[in-house]
């Protein structure tokens, strides 16, 4: 499901982006004047389900404290790709990974790396909001710390508030923290899941089509939130919605049948794609 209806004019997309006054200039913590530091260095990444290969040797670098969008038609492997970044892919029986993924220059598939510890640094938000139904709002936020026994009781309230504020949910739920998390609206649930992921204090946040189950207003709130979060976190977002990619991301990767077709600054992808297939996709000729 790509952007429905008429092909979108790249110009219009650019206008939408600029409305958010996204800084195009490098920031203080950049390594050089042009590019931010690399968070993930992905080389020859391949992935399989059983004998079916779904990723065919991807090479790309994901910048620190930037928003990187992964777009492409259904089944192109974009979800599988980000699930390789926190080693969730291997939870599926028969799933396999090949190639190399470096996080801050450490091979996350290297010997001695515990995927569980990795996932505490690389948080994830899913397509469908999945708050734990047996837990209250507060318990959901603290779930990550509680699950992993890292919670000091004294800090619980502080961490809870901080995470909910970061997820822009605090004002809406501060009076009903003990109510079930599943009682919130879909958009609130998704922000609760973001708060839950932030409470563990990761440095990366992976978002797998986080707005696909939400209405436009809730979607806008999540997108605003992504803008604030990019100050502190490296964000990789999978989306089937090209306007969303254009609105929220600094760089965009276009995947097609498990291969990386094009990876460039978002403006360039949407205004002057260098590959014919990218152009066909963003102008709605297929997908």
């Amino acid at each position: 499901m790509a952007s429905a209806g008429a092909p979108t004019a790249p110009e219009k997309l650019r206008m939408t982006q600029s409305a958010h006054s996204r800084p195009g200039r490098p920031r203080e913590n950049s390594v050089n004047s042009e590019e931010a530091a690399t968070k993930f260095r992905v080389r020859r990444l391949a992935a399989w389900f059983g004998s079916q290969q779904v990723l065919h040797g991807l090479d790309l670098d994901i910048s620190k404290q930037r928003v990187t969008a992964i777009i492409g038609p259904s089944g192109c492997g974009k979800s599988t790709f980000i699930r390789c970044l926190n080693r969730m892919h291997e939870l599926v029986p028969s799933a396999r990974v090949g190639g190399e993924v470096r996080l801050d220059d450490e091979d996350i598939y290297g010997p001695g790396v515990d995927p569980v510890l990795l996932r505490r640094r690389v948080g994830m938000v899913f397509q469908k909001p999945n708050p734990f139904p047996s837990m209250s709002i507060r318990d959901n936020v603290l779930a990550g710390l509680r699950l992993t026994h890292q919670l000091a009781r004294a800090h619980a309230n502080e961490i809870n508030e901080k995470a909910l504020r970061s997820a822009a949910l605090w004002d809406e739920v501060k009076d009903r923290l003990d109510e079930p998390g599943a009682g919130l609206s879909g958009g609130q649930q998704q922000r609760l899941c973001i708060a839950r992921a932030l409470a563990v204090e990761p440095d990366v946040l992976l978002m797998d089509e986080p707005c696909s189950a939400l209405d436009p207003i809730a979607t806008a709130r999540i997108e605003d939130l992504i803008h604030t979060l990019r100050e502190r976190y490296t964000i990789v977002i999978v989306t089937h919605n090209m306007q969303q990619a254009a609105r929220v991301s600094d760089r965009t990767a276009f995947l097609l049948t498990g291969e990386l077709v094009e990876y460039a600054p978002t403006d360039r992808i949407f205004t002057a794609p260098s590959d014919k297939r990218t152009e066909d996709y963003i102008t709605g000729k297929f997908g």
Partner: peptide
């Protein structure tokens, strides 16, 4: 118990037993 809840727990850095004990079993 839906798979999505187990995934949510794993994504927070919970181990298998932590996931079972605190997410799967209560449900």
């Amino acid at each position: 118990v839906p798979l999505s809840l187990r995934e949510g727990s794993y994504a927070l850095g919970a181990t298998r037993w932590q996931t079972i004990r605190q997410v799967v079993l209560p449900m």
